[in-house]
Nucleic acid binder design. Structure first.
Length: 575
DNA sequence: GCCGTTTTCGGCCCGACTGTTTTCAGTCG
């Protein structure tokens, strides 16, 4: 229900904008949608308890609307708005340079209500004759429509990071560049990245040269815009990259601003105002001339002026960080804290490398323990192990453990959760492993409640230690299966089970948005690479990013624990 | 439509860039 209400409010917000409504009314609906989407309790429950109206951003009008949707399943006001325009009209927003105002004009004057309509109108040269539109705008529309079909507006975090790091190293060696940092959603470690933001500080006389070096570099495919402080390009990797250059003293302000998120910035500026200051991307300025202008050399100083402790970039989503950092700080988990991992495949099933090679790689990464979890027998496509081959693998692991003591190899399995929630090995076989990762690899299309029950049943098996990739999503490729993640976390909490953050760049599943709830419920997290080769073991770094973004600390992540603590955790689960 | 440590009305974050204009509206982040 929460998502349904959020969807409706989001659409209302956009449709009101297209209708030319007061923009703050639109923002109010959009804010309400965002607030409702991230509630950890259902709207119905909050409504029953009479607590819904206490939530910031939900006033009298929105509350009435929520009540109507809960009661009748729809919102009359929303239906009425929708009837004013064809359904397809919202897709026009996907086009770069098209916003609500242009949509209104295009619809009123030329009856354009879809991307196809717009393309045809451009090709017929109809746009260039509209008031406020000319030839250039028409060309831009056509080019934006063609990039849309190339899907260049969304990228995996790892791909965007790789491209960004190439640019970063190029800029770092330029003499004219004083400071350079990756900002934007990469710095916030979002799982999906729209574009790359690079921030540079340099003397004004050098700016033009740096912009030229950047835009004329061989990694650039196309220049989108070039101004005095900002330049945008499309890279050969098909990712848009924006670069800004500011003065040295402006750098912390600009870094903070261009890291975002937008929602975080809005709150920063509103807090500045309450402190008699105005904040922009370059500096603080005084609203009340009687005050003294604060001196800020770092981002930490900026937060301090606003009576906040330093907020790590990953947490800047206006997701509760402002309340928390007024009086608290947090030391987020980081890569140096990892002592091992639990979900790696070998060539016993569908991994590319041998047990020995995988263990050697784990040693080289400084791990103290290393869990093997090959597929179970039903995963025929992945050469899953039957009971006999499990025993062979266990024998091999015992031998390797006997031969060396630098790293402890743990015996695990990634057992399939079958359609009915039972597991692919009997309890007797499961009892022979040090730990068990249980995952779904089949029958994705079940109803939300069936899928939730399926996973809950598996979690209740006393031999299950860790729930693997809890939604099965493949980012930008396949949505996860429908599942009530709050309920899964509740059950994991009741039964002392761990949930995996699968660190494969395509998965990053558990999603960071649920980590904080898991932490609240004392559900421990395992950061697992799901490695199918020695190189993929290093993917744990992406899992660390998710964990940081999900507010997790060393104590919340079992891979950060000592070997005996981990072994105790697993054996206690079986009691 | 929401909100309040200058409260029940009058604000609501702020600036760069583009493309259209000839001073600015729209979009974007």
């Amino acid at each position: 229900m929460n998502n349904k209400i959020a969807d409706i409010f989001e659409e209302v917000s956009i449709l009101l904008e297209i209708s030319g409504e007061n923009k703050f009314k639109c923002i109010a609906y959009s804010n309400a949608a965002k607030t409702i989407r991230v509630l950890s309790e259902s709207v119905e429950a909050l409504l029953n308890k009479g607590e819904l109206q206490n939530i910031k951003g939900i006033g009298k009008g929105i509350l009435q609307n929520i009540f109507e949707i809960v009661e009748s399943g729809e919102l009359f006001f929303h239906k009425e708005l929708k009837q004013k325009f064809p359904n397809s009209i919202l897709e026009l927003l996907k086009i770069q340079g098209v916003g609500p105002k242009k949509i209104k004009t295009l619809y009123d004057k030329l009856n354009i209500a879809s991307i196809d309509d717009l393309k045809i109108a451009c090709e017929k040269n109809l746009i260039a004759n509209l008031d406020g539109f000319r030839e250039k705008t028409q060309q831009n529309f056509l080019s934006a429509i063609s990039s849309l079909s190339k899907n260049i507006d969304k990228h995996l975090y790892c791909d965007a990071l790789n491209s960004a790091e190439i640019i970063l190293s190029f800029l770092k060696i330029q003499n004219e560049v004083e400071q350079v940092e990756i900002a934007g959603s990469i710095r916030r470690k979002k799982e999906i990245i729209g574009d790359i933001d690079i921030l540079v500080s340099a003397k004004e006389i050098h700016r033009e040269k740096i912009f030229n070096l950047f835009t004329q570099h061989e990694f650039v495919e196309k220049i989108l815009s070039k101004g005095e402080t900002k330049s945008s390009v499309i890279l050969k990797s098909q990712i848009q990259c924006d670069m800004r250059i500011v003065d040295g003293f402006q750098f912390p302000f600009a870094l903070n601003y261009f890291t975002g998120s937008k929602e975080h910035n809005v709150e920063m500026r509103s807090r500045a105002k309450k402190n008699g200051l105005s904040l922009n991307e370059y500096e603080f300025s005084l609203l009340d001339k009687k005050n003294k202008l604060p001196n800020c050399k770092t981002e930490k100083d900026i937060y301090k002026v606003l009576n906040l402790n330093y907020i790590p970039s990953e947490l800047r989503e206006n997701f509760g960080e402002f309340d928390f950092f007024e009086n608290n700080t947090i030391e987020l988990v980081d890569e140096t804290m990892l002592k091992g991992t639990f979900h790696c495949h070998t060539n016993f099933s569908d991994g590319k490398n041998s047990l020995e090679d995988m263990v050697e790689k784990a040693k080289s990464l400084g791990f103290l323990y290393f869990g093997i979890a090959d597929h179970s027998k039903v995963a025929v496509y992945a050469n899953g192990l039957d009971e006999k081959r499990v025993m062979e693998q266990h024998k091999k692991i015992d031998e390797l453990n006997f031969k060396q003591s630098q790293i402890k190899i743990l015996k695990g399995t990634e057992v399939d959760i079958l359609r009915d929630g039972s597991l692919d090995f009997s309890d007797e076989v499961l009892s022979k492993f040090d730990y068990v990762v249980a995952s779904i690899h089949s029958s994705f299309k079940m109803s939300k409640s069936e899928m939730t029950n399926r996973i809950v049943k598996a979690l209740k098996n006393k031999y299950v230690s860790i729930l693997g990739h809890p939604t099965g999503r493949l980012l930008l490729e396949r949505d996860g299966y429908e599942v009530d993640m709050n309920e899964i976390i509740n059950v994991a909490s009741d039964f002392g089970k761990s949930i995996e953050i699968n660190s494969h760049p395509l998965r990053l599943d558990l999603d960071w948005r649920f980590c904080r709830y898991a932490k609240e419920k004392n559900v421990k997290i395992a950061i697992n690479p799901d490695a199918h080769s020695i190189f993929e073991i290093e993917n744990v770094k992406y899992g660390i990013s998710v964990a940081r973004k999900g507010w997790l600390e060393e104590k919340d992540v079992i891979n950060c624990w000592k070997l005996d603590e981990v072994e105790n955790f697993f054996s206690n689960q079986k009691r």
